[in-house]
């Protein structure tokens, strides 16, 4: 099959930190207080308002938590940074999708959310491409589902998503398209900001120390490709460790130490 130019992904050393530049877990205002659903965060409702993951109780006398997570006080808002949860697609998110089904009008992709994403063929080729010539049969370019196969790993952008309809996806754009190599692992979606770190510090450190390419997406999936198998294994172990210890402080320093140690133990240069 012929492959388009736009499918070609230039340098996969991509900085995804522009999407999530604040590492909520590492914020000074995030306390290490673990809260569980129903726990009273404050009874001072005059000075504080419920933010993310929190709610007033019935008579508005208390603010209670909805999730298991870490308590954060930001200005006059009280938030709870969740430690567990699921991914909810939002327009503009770049996510890794797996093509699970296709029919003549659309691809159906698993994006690790409650609904499966829809990828229409018109969203797989850039606009403004010649659509056949006048009077002749249309070039079957942008309305057939021949470009991708079932089982392909795609990096897609969410075009539209809401509570009721299935999210619509696109593969037109920078860094988007099919991935032919590397491997994909899945972690808890709420812990993705931790893997990126504050202004991308963690991901830069991981890239430098393991000499790998990493693409972190909001839906909890991480695409990675290392120099060799040993580096990839080390990287996966490191990411699993980050996932496990996401709620502790000073993780970046500890992780670089951990990787250096593991390199010595595993005999990698």
């Amino acid at each position: 099959m012929e492959h388009e130019k736009d499918e070609h992904i230039e340098d996969p050393t991509i900085d995804t930190s522009e999407d999530i530049d604040v590492d909520e877990f590492d914020d000074e205002q995030t306390s290490r207080d673990l809260v569980v659903p129903g726990e009273v965060l404050t009874e001072d409702t005059k000075n504080f308002l419920p933010g993310r993951g929190t709610i007033f109780n019935k008579d508005r006398s208390k603010i209670i938590s909805l999730n298991i997570g870490l308590k954060q006080v930001k200005r006059n808002y009280i938030n709870v940074i969740p430690l567990r949860g699921f991914y909810t697609p939002r327009p503009g998110d770049k996510v890794i999708a797996l093509v699970t089904d296709k029919n003549p009008v659309k691809y159906i992709c698993d994006i690790n959310a409650k609904d499966r994403g829809i990828l229409k063929p018109k969203n797989t080729v850039p606009r403004g491409k010649p659509r056949g010539y006048r009077g002749g049969a249309p070039d079957n370019h942008d309305n057939s589902t021949k470009k991708y196969e079932i089982g392909d790993i795609l990096i897609v952008k969410v075009l539209s998503a809401d509570r009721l309809n299935k999210p619509e996806l696109t593969t037109v754009g920078k860094y988007l398209g099919k991935r032919r190599d590397g491997l994909v692992i899945t972690i808890d979606p709420p812990k993705i900001p931790r893997v990126i770190g504050r202004s991308g510090s963690m991901i830069k450190m991981l890239k430098n120390l393991t000499k790998s390419n990493i693409f972190v997406t909001q839906n909890g999936r991480i695409w990675l490709k290392g120099e060799d198998l040993a580096h990839e294994r080390l990287l996966i172990d490191a990411i699993r460790k980050i996932e496990k210890e996401a709620h502790t402080v000073g993780l970046t320093d500890r992780m670089s130490e951990y990787i250096e140690n593991e390199k010595k133990i595993r005999g990698m240069n």
Binding site: V36, P37, G53, I64, N67, I68, P82, R84, G85, P190
Partner: peptide, 11 residues
């Protein structure tokens, strides 16, 4: 349910 991260009013 709480462990799954489902938003809950309380246990």
């Amino acid at each position: 349910l709480a462990d799954a991260g489902v938003p809950m009013r309380s246990l």
